[in-house]
């Protein structure tokens, strides 16, 4: 296991350098420079432009800029936003908990609905339920997030008035940020109405963000379960007289988990990218919207630092997913 871990971690380093290089080059390929973008239609005199370009170091050759960036990175310095002038780490740290809270709730929604639905569809293969669910999941998978989000807001918030329109919490609640996770902060503050307000604000964005992963997880669970349910040992288990419930949940489901867990790991990446749109629609103050603004304003440090941090987190999640295979299925060993 240790050796496996070592191999995987050593693979992370080139990936990490690859991300830095890719992002560094890509952001500079976007036409326009940050100084020009800041000036808007007012424009900026060429002397002032030259002075600022020099001050930010954008006049150096790109390779030198990259070298300087890497050397700062090694010291843990991701730079400062050109727009707000706060450190990238500080901005990321204040926004990331909101994205994590939303993504975890969306994932929970996708798992709690997707897995049972997938199992039932597999057990009742080719029934109306199965076909209905698979049709719905295809629709969910193809749904554009912004359209789906606005539709839910119009129905549940504006027409029915069941949920708030957007934001993380009703504006009248003032909860001091301790962990950055509002569900936890409100409980720490002992403010139960604020907690419920935070929960009610999470419902729609979690559903919107969780829709695509839900569809994928439901379909993957169904196909993995179908494969396992056709195995000889399932027939044996049934022949032994075990209850159908036990056969499905204990014997079949556990063995179907490997592909499902893989998909869940991959869906974390989808959740982060989906969060970009969901956060914009629901005015959710997370890193997705921060990165979008970063692109619009050519905020190089934010784009480089933000992408690198998110990339690292996704790499870490996939590493954890790989390691859980061994826990789920003892036949899988990672020594060699």
């Amino acid at each position: 296991m240790l050796r496996f871990l070592f191999t995987r971690v050593s693979l992370v380093i080139p990936t990490f350098i690859g991300i830095t290089l890719l992002v560094f080059v890509l952001v500079r390929l976007i036409p326009g420079d940050p100084i020009e973008t800041m000036a808007g239609e007012r424009g900026i005199s060429s002397e002032e432009h030259a002075r600022l370009v020099h001050e930010y170091g954008f006049d150096k050759p790109v390779i030198v800029q990259y070298g300087l960036y890497l050397s700062r990175l090694v010291r843990g310095d991701l730079g400062r936003s050109i727009v707000t002038h706060k450190t990238v780490i500080e901005e990321f740290g204040s926004l990331f908990p909101a994205t994590v809270e939303l993504s975890l709730c969306a994932l929970m929604f996708a798992l709690l609905v997707g897995i049972p639905v997938g199992i039932i569809a597999a057990v009742r293969r080719n029934s109306i339920f199965d076909q209905g669910i698979m049709g719905l999941s295809l629709t969910g998978y193809s749904m554009p997030i912004f359209w789906w989000g606005l539709l839910l807001i119009l129905l549940f918030s504006v027409q029915l008035g069941w949920t708030p329109v957007s934001g993380r919490i009703a504006v009248l609640y003032f909860v001091e940020a301790k962990t950055g996770f509002l569900l936890i902060d409100t409980l720490l503050a002992g403010d139960i109405p604020a907690f419920w307000s935070a929960v009610s604000h999470l419902i729609l964005p979690a559903i919107v963000l969780g829709t695509v992963p839900l569809a994928v997880i439901a379909r993957m669970t169904r196909s993995a379960m179908l494969e396992v349910l056709g195995e000889d040992y399932i027939r044996t288990a049934r022949a032994k007289g075990l209850s159908s419930f036990r056969v499905v949940t204990v014997h079949a489901f556990r063995n179907a988990l490997i592909p499902i867990v893989t998909v869940i790991g991959l869906q974390m990446g989808v959740l982060f990218t989906g969060a970009i749109l969901t956060e914009t629609i629901f005015s959710w103050p997370g890193v997705g919207k921060w990165l979008i603004d970063g692109i619009a304003r050519r905020d190089y440090p934010v784009l480089q630092g933000g992408t690198l941090l998110i990339g690292s987190i996704i790499m870490a999640i996939n590493l954890i997913v790989d390691m859980t295979y061994g826990l789920i299925n003892p036949r899988i060993r990672h020594q060699r």
Binding site: I153, V165, G167, V171, T280, I281, S283, K289
Partner: peptide
């Protein structure tokens, strides 16, 4: 200032009195 970048969402909030 309740920061709401999407104009349709701002309008939904105004309708609801948020």
């Amino acid at each position: 200032f309740s920061i709401t970048p999407d104009a349709s969402v701002r309008w939904a909030k105004l309708q609801k009195g948020e």
